[in-house]
Design a protein around this nucleic acid. Structure first.
Lengths: 374, 374
DNA sequence: TTGAAAGCGCTAACAC
DNA sequence: GTGTTAGCGCTTTCAA
């Protein structure tokens, strides 16, 4: 266990002058050493470091920020949710920020929060940050916010209007298209979509990717089912999908086994995240549909349990860490070289993880279930 | 979408003197208004607020911190993991900190991080915080850290040695005992445990709770299986448990159906988190064991998909939000009233969520699966 | 290579 | 109720 020991009672914490005195140099030299500035003799540097160590000196960041006008911290506006995606992104951001030599301030905006993102940004600005990260932006109407620092928006359209704004993120639209195409390639006549809340860009992009994949093959779009990322909402959607099935509780359903391509049978579902996919599967199974023999289901995110649920989930993995790292790199560059052109974001790799929740539709000869498990 | 607009070009940001000038009062009066101090006339207050608004004035936090010696921020040392527990706790902490009028600084310690918690605490202290939260402490050996601010340790033994340290958290030991007792009450002869990494207090406490429940009934402890919180490690443990089974691949296994209380049959498993429980179930099912008919499994955490996996998982829910709120309340109290005695932590409610992954053991007459789903 | 002096924008202590 | 005066502990500028 980390041992925490109390400081020297009420005695004031040492300041840089104290270090200077002990080292026999000026206060300015201490400052130079601590900031790794040039023009300090090796001897002076050594003495300063020794003195600082002996005194247990810690630089006062407030004073430094006041004098320099830079806080060396970056603020992140995050959604207050333990959802795998946002949580993973936040971890990536923290690490990237720290590696860049900055500290991290966090403000969550809970959904439905009155002041929302605008309020969060205001509060970060007041706390003092050199740059702001907006993670997983969502729609909301608020007044304009005056921002005087660079802003990084992770996973937003580049249309995000603001001064000195950079964006990164994978094209989740591409990812969604890959997921949908995987199902079409297996021979499914069409693919149903269980969407996330449309206030989220992430949800809209996935919807668009699904639409694009269908259109590219000249297929009509089945009506979209709306979820809220939760397994419960996926379950509700799954019940509705099961109702549309032959063999389901819908009156006038055809006989099981009599399905054909082009019919109304639901044989393939793309859910906008894994939690909803798991809910969908649960509902289908309860309705007597087998996954993947009767219905294939693809999720999104590759949550830690995805490979171990029944059946192991075919899903799409996002490179959260790479996205965060790339984004912070751009942001820091924009902070430290305000005059340079806004750097362009590089593309991030995409990964479809095929497990056992997808298979050819029931009217084709079933092959063995493919597994690329993790 | 939140609209971000650029500030007034290169013009210096307004300071409180500018507000004072515009409002026709002294700078100190501006300070009083902004800090909600008494002894300001309603008229002066109104004028100051109007002027501040007109100028788009934002308080400079660095200057305030330097002058007052207080930063109004709290730092949290968190594990860099998207695991449901730590992530949920962090969200609770952020919200509680903000509600208390403080800002949040976050530093993650990734497992295996050389500088670990000690380094994280150092860096927070340097950034400037009025208090520190250590979330989900883990063991590690590092030198002592000098800390001059109150510390809150969430989910640690109160033996955590430090000056002005407060702790809260549910007794997860109690929760683990409840989970184990649930299985014993169903008639299982004993309960096996898939433990988390023993560097984590959370994992050790759950282990101890399990042990306590068994001892209280005079039962011997089956050997513990060690996991790392991941579903993959749960899966490995599940395979091993399946191997211990009659009907498993262990040579000399008795006939299925010939099991009796007191035999070596594995009929009940308590996993230290839900991810591992899901992995265990997957392994058992693959080995031909039915859950819950042959083997009951209890998880821990109640992750969002727990109610929707197959079978819906019986698990234990921790009140993360209440724990965080309670802890921050104590911490803030300790910060703001340094002389008062350390306040005591109140207990938090405990909840066993019974779903369908648990049932009486196979040698009893099976009743219908109970469900208290969520 | 080093140091002295002058703030950074606010709060604290005290007068009025 | 309100204003005045000193700093808080650094970085910046400029001189040595």
């Amino acid at each position: 266990m980390t041992r925490l020991v109390k400081g020297p009672g009420d005695a004031r914490l040492p300041r840089s002058v104290d270090v200077a005195r002990l080292a026999g140099v000026s206060q300015k030299t201490v400052s130079r050493v601590l900031n790794n500035e040039p023009y300090v003799s090796a001897e002076a540097r050594r003495r300063v470091l020794a003195a600082a160590d002996q005194l247990g000196y810690r630089l006062n960041n407030a004073a430094r920020a006041l004098a320099s006008g830079r806080t060396r911290s970056i603020g992140v506006v995050s959604l207050g949710t333990a959802l795998f995606g946002p949580a993973s992104l936040l971890i990536g951001v923290e690490r990237a920020v720290r590696d860049a030599g900055y500290a991290l301030r966090v403000v969550n905006t809970l959904e439905g929060d009155a002041r929302g993102v605008a309020g969060a940004v205001e509060s970060l600005l007041e706390q003092g940050v050199d740059g702001i990260v907006i993670s997983e932006p969502i729609d909301e109407q608020t007044g304009p916010v005056r921002v005087d620092v660079p802003v990084l928006v992770l996973g937003a359209p580049s249309s995000f209007a603001a001064p000195r704004v950079v964006t990164t993120g994978v094209s989740t639209e591409l990812l969604a298209r890959v997921a949908t195409e995987h199902l079409l390639d297996l021979g499914h006549a069409t693919v149903h979509h269980v969407a996330g809340p449309q206030r989220w860009f992430a949800a809209r992009e996935r919807l668009e990717g699904w639409q694009a994949a269908l259109r590219a093959r000249g297929l009509r779009e089945p009506s979209v089912l709306r979820g809220d990322w939760s397994a419960a909402s996926g379950y509700a959607a799954g019940r509705e999908l099961a109702g549309r099935e032959p063999g389901g509780r819908e009156p006038g359903g055809r006989e099981p086994g009599g399905r054909e391509p082009g019919g109304d049978a639901v044989t393939a579902v793309f859910a906008a995240n894994d939690d909803m996919a798991i809910g969908v599967i649960r509902a289908l199974v309860e309705a007597g549909r087998r996954v993947p023999e009767d219905v294939s289901v693809v999720g999104f995110d590759d949550i830690p349990v995805a490979a171990y649920v029944t059946p192991p989930l075919t899903t799409v993995r996002q490179p959260f860490d790479a996205v965060a790292r790339e984004g912070i790199k751009l942001l820091v560059q924009t902070i430290e070289q305000p005059d340079a052109d806004l750097p362009a974001a590089a593309g991030q790799p995409v990964e479809l993880v095929v497990r056992s929740s997808t298979a050819p539709p029931p009217w084709t000869t079933p092959g063995p279930a493919r597994t690329t498990s993790g």
